[in-house]
Structure formats: C-alpha cells, structure tokens
C-alpha cells in the first residue's frame, strides 16, 4: 500500500520533481553566464553586489566544499530571478485584445468574447425594442405653438371668457344685497333668474330644453331633432358648465330641486 501511495505521490509531484532539477541546472548555467555578462557590463549599481556574491559564495563553499551540479545557490538563483524578472518587465506586451493569455486558450477566449458580444448586442436590441413599445405614442411637443394648438387655446379661452362673463353678470346682480335677509333673498332670486336668462340670450327656453335633454340623453335614444341645432355647431358646449346653469336654475326654483337633481343623478349613473 505504501508503495502505491508513494508512487501516486510521485506521480502527482512528478511535474514538480522533474522540473526543478533541470530548471535549476539551467538557471545555474544561466546565472553563470549572466555573471560573466555582468562582469563585462559592470554597471554602477551592480558593482557592490559581486563582492557580496563572492563573499557568500565563499561562505557556502566553505560549508559544502564544492558546488554540487544540481543545486542552485540561493544567491545565484536570486540574481537569476532578478534578471529574469527585469527582462519580463522590460518586454513590451503586444496590445492584444485578449492580453497575455496562454496560446492554447487564446482561441477559446476569443470565441467566448465574441459570443458575449453578440449576446449583449441581442439583449440591447431587445431592450431597445421594448423601450420603443413602451414609448409608443409618446410625443415631445414642439417648442412653438402650431396652428392647431393655437386653435385649441382659442377655444379654451372662449369658454373661459364666457364663463367669467356669466359669473360677472350673476354676481354683479346680487351685489349690495344680503342673502341672509329674507326680503333680499327674494330679490336676489328674481334677479338671478333674470340675469341668467339674459345671459343665455334669446334662446333661453330652447337652451333649457336642450340642457335637460343633455342630462337625460342616455335614457332617450335618437329622439332629438332640431332641438340639437345649437349643439351641432358645438358652440354652446364650449361653455364649461352648461349643466350647472341648469342646476342653478334648479336652485332658484326650490320645488323642483329635489326632483331634478335626483333625476339627473340617476340618469348619469
């Protein structure tokens, strides 16, 4: 069993075991050659080191007596490492997209990257599409007022003016009267009615009719003829609260209030 284990261990470590010795030997040789080279070069900073090296070499030699071929001396290995490292740092890496990768993996990595790229593109497109669907119908208005907008503003202004004028007339009529006093209240009621009808103009009865119809329009189906004439040009409806004028009329005639309002509300439901 132990044999087996040891064998396995050897197998496992075989890479490590085998390599160090040749590498060490190589390094040894390299370091030797480097030493020679360095001596030739004799740069400023390295001048001191050979001395040390020599000293320590002597020391180690004292210990071992002679240099064994398979073992790299610590100092020499260090020097070799240093030079190797320097060499590595000096080399400029090609500006490859993948960076320094083992050549075996280069193809795989490239494939993977390309795949990711396409995937991202597809996802981005899908997202863009989704965004477009979500934004469907969303329009940014122009900085200027085009004719259509101007027309709309005009219509709205007309409506506002009409309402304000009506309010003005109605509220001017009741000026100076105290609604809490019963005598004044009667006058107010009468004036309100007059003001209301005068504001509505000549077609007072007709409009009242159409208004009530507007209130009950859901109940009656297709029963309107000429009565709808004022509505047809859309003019009366430009006023925001035609319906409320109707209601206002209701409040003046108190007997009808309950019935009318209940009627209209039930119709609206």
């Amino acid at each position: 069993m132990q044999k087996l284990y040891s064998k396995r261990a050897r197998d496992y470590n075989s890479d490590d075991d085998d390599e160090p010795s040749p590498v060490g030997r190589n390094r040894n040789e390299q370091s030797y050659s480097r030493n020679e080279v360095r001596d030739v070069k004799s740069s400023d900073e390295e001048e001191e080191e050979p001395l040390n090296d020599d000293m320590e070499n002597e020391m180690s030699e004292d210990e071992d007596g002679e240099i064994q071929p398979g073992i790299t001396k610590f100092i020499e290995g260090c020097n070799a490492f240093r030079t190797a490292f320097k060499k590595i740092t000096k080399t400029n890496i090609s500006d490859d997209l993948l960076g320094p990768v083992l050549s075996a993996h280069q193809k795989l990595l490239a494939e993977k990257l390309a795949e990711e790229e396409t995937e991202r593109k597809v996802r981005g497109e899908a997202k863009k599409e989704k965004h477009l669907i979500g934004e469907k119908g969303h329009v940014k208005p122009a900085n200027f007022l085009d004719s259509h907008e101007k027309f709309l503003i005009g219509v709205a202004t007309k409506g506002v003016v009409k309402l304000f004028n009506a309010v003005n007339k109605a509220q001017n009529a009741q000026k100076g009267l105290n609604p809490s006093r019963s005598k004044d209240a009667k006058v107010i009621r009468k004036r309100r009615k007059e003001a209301f009808f005068s504001e509505l103009g000549k077609t007072s009865s007709q409009t009242a009719e159409t208004l009530t119809k507007a209130g009950t329009s859901r109940g009656t189906v297709g029963g309107e003829g000429p009565a709808w004439a004022p509505l047809r040009d859309g003019y009366m409806l430009t006023n925001p609260k035609l319906k409320d004028w109707d209601k206002m009329q209701d409040t003046t005639v108190e007997n009808e209030v309950g019935r009318m309002s209940s009627d209209s509300s039930s119709d609206d439901d």
């Binding site: 309402l163 189906v221 409806l237 430009t238």
Partner: peptide, 24 residues
C-alpha cells in the same frame, strides 16, 4: 379645473355620453 367641451354637439349618442361623463 374647469372643463370645456367643444365640438361634441354632433348629436351622436356616444358623444353625448362622453360629454356627460366628462362634465360630471
């Protein structure tokens, strides 16, 4: 807000209903 409805007076039923709905 106030509401202004314009152009709904064509006499069609659904438009009238729209008018009433928005008025209320």
């Amino acid at each position: 807000p106030l509401i202004v409805l314009s152009g709904f007076g064509t006499g069609e039923q659904h438009l009238k209903l729209t008018t009433i709905m928005f008025q209320n």
